[in-house]
Design a protein around this nucleic acid. Sequence first.
DNA 1: GCGACAG
DNA 2: ATCTTGTCGC
Length: 219
Amino acid sequence: MGFDYQRAVMLQRILSERVLAELDSFPRIDPSRIRSVAGVDASYRGGVQVGSAVFMDYRAKMLLAYTCLASKPPIPYVPGLLAFREAPVYIKALHRLPAKPDIILVDGHGLSHPRAFGIATHIGLVLNTPSIGVAKKPLYGEVEEVNGRKLVRAHGRIVGEVVETSQGSEIYVSIGYLIRLEDAVEVVRHLMEPGLKLPLPIHLADNYSRSKCIKELRL
DNA sequence: GCGACAG
DNA sequence: ATCTTGTCGC
């Protein structure tokens, strides 16, 4: 019933090496070509996790579909290894969507992680899809102010940015996979709503996994 | 040894 | 993340 911490850490190191090598060649994204976006989140009830994914029209910011499923958490929560606990259920939920999203927003960090392999990066790599990490609290990296922007430096690169919410609080946006920081921040800003701390897709995924899905799954 | 530590 | 009532404040 245990899991191999050292192996998990080793895997993150090996895979992050590949990602960091590709980092500078991640393509720029033309915002006018983004059609859809997905958001994922999870909640827990009685030792069972409920993962949900929402699928939205990017420009209209309209909900097109959502999925959710209950599952037994593979491992307990361990800081730095969140992906080994939550990525599997997210990936299953994403596969149940009617179409593959152009970009995936994940509740957590991407490259602003101790080994440059947070859950957003993990999911992006597995699905070979552009992904963005959006976290409510900092995890790793130093914040430096540049031209009034709070950039996050980790592993010698600028991998994230602290973005202010309409309510004055802050969220931590980071590169997941196959996307540049400037584009990631633009996407997140586009999807933020007045009064909401998190961008719409993650906010909705959070809501569904905590309320509607739990009822539908009779938990 | 001590404190920190996404969700 | 989750366990949890009333209460302070806009």
